[in-house]
Design a protein around this nucleic acid. Sequence first.
DNA 1: CTCCATGCTTTCACTCAGTGGAATAGGCTG
DNA 2: CAGCCTATTCCACTGAGTGAAAGCATGGAG
Lengths: 255, 255
Amino acid sequence: MAGGSTPGASLVERTLAVLGAFDDRHRRLRLTDIAERSGLTPPTALRIARTLVGGGALERLPDGTYVVGRRLWEIGLLAPVQTGLREVAAPFLQDLQAATGATVHLAERDGDRVLYLDRLSGVASVPVVSRVGSRLPMHATGVGKVLLAHAPAEVRARVLSGLTRVTPYTVVAPAVLEKQLERVVRDGYATTNEEMTLGACSVAVPVRAADDTVVAALALVVPSLRRDRSRLVAALQVAAQGVRRELERRTARPA
Amino acid sequence: MAGGSTPGASLVERTLAVLGAFDDRHRRLRLTDIAERSGLTPPTALRIARTLVGGGALERLPDGTYVVGRRLWEIGLLAPVQTGLREVAAPFLQDLQAATGATVHLAERDGDRVLYLDRLSGVASVPVVSRVGSRLPMHATGVGKVLLAHAPAEVRARVLSGLTRVTPYTVVAPAVLEKQLERVVRDGYATTNEEMTLGACSVAVPVRAADDTVVAALALVVPSLRRDRSRLVAALQVAAQGVRRELERRTARPA
DNA sequence: CTCCATGCTTTCACTCAGTGGAATAGGCTG
DNA sequence: CAGCCTATTCCACTGAGTGAAAGCATGGAG
């Protein structure tokens, strides 16, 4: 190269780096931002970005900033995460939403974090930070506690040793959280009280597959748990059972 | 190159070609398929696919086939198509679904086809081919007719001159369709009767922005229109108005 | 108005990342 | 076991891609 080097990255990797520069908090990026966030020089970032725009993977707004394009959205929707569990669970989420009026979440574990697969906003205006496709820490969310309680020991150990505070109510003492996790396994559901977002509480239950392994978690987000915790848990468990049955049916004769 | 040439494609374009090899009907591809569908030689396709797997953009299943990966799904969800109109309309779609029990569609025009932005499956088991992110011909769908009726003359001309038959009931006579489009503009809604899928009828209305331009279409899919066409139209129009109002609110003070 | 700062874009000479034909390995089938 | 298909590895060749540096626009400050 003209004076430079290619430090370990092929063009395909650089392309992914450009795409990876976009995230939840950075949906619109200027060229300079892309270059900086992807670790590329401006000319290189420009050439890649232009080609991506040409292919519809990125879009260039009138003000010169870049956003993720339609084409990529379309291709992303083909991912099995989208077509599998999410599709099966969708009607049950709707039922839950209709029955409780609360915000409904479907999430699975991805490494040491929770990955939100789907979300239906409820009628009540409870502040919710999660978005479909976003990742949040496990110890501060309802779905996270459920998934953590049923995760391999090594994951639990890793997460317990790195509890970060999000709100004043976040549980950051490993011993306390461990007790809670035991109760989650025993009782079959988890709760949070403003541990991720002030003003938002949640109840969550595991979704199990045919072999009883926990594959995901369902949760309801409400302003307060005082009143109807048991009612919400019941509704969630019905829905989780429904998802399980539908999963079994599809595995038996994959239509 | 060793005897070969690079016919017009940069590596980034080739990467997009690999990703573009996946579509609605081809979600799982073998290396050979990827190579063929993207117009690349097997070694090249392999190298690109491997790097993409390394970056999480693709996934390799145990049987050796490739599918779109989580990472790409995540990035795709950042597209404005996902965050804008779709998010605004979501609660109204839920209301429609709850009120009518039918399958609900939200779509916009993309070139000469309809792009499905969102879909809620209804309780009734009406056969539906559309999927979020899929494109269908305009002349055979409810949303399509609405969008076509309000599309620029050139688009209408192009579409009218290339009407393809999908079912025995598909309208393929330009004159007939043109009459229908006039009625769509006059009446404010469009209908289809098994024109795309046997056993599925639909009603659709336009969604307008503050300046009255049609930005999308809302539809309900039902087994038959005999009975309650007017009831469905009314529900749709309420929802469309709601979306419009919410769009205006967001444009006024973009929060 | 000039001057400087910032960010996007173009240029260009150099060179290594990427190329594809051919050969190899691995499965599956008849 | 031969025949076929697919995935993978090899390798000699070369042009696609590289980044420093220099042009352009903006636009804000003095």
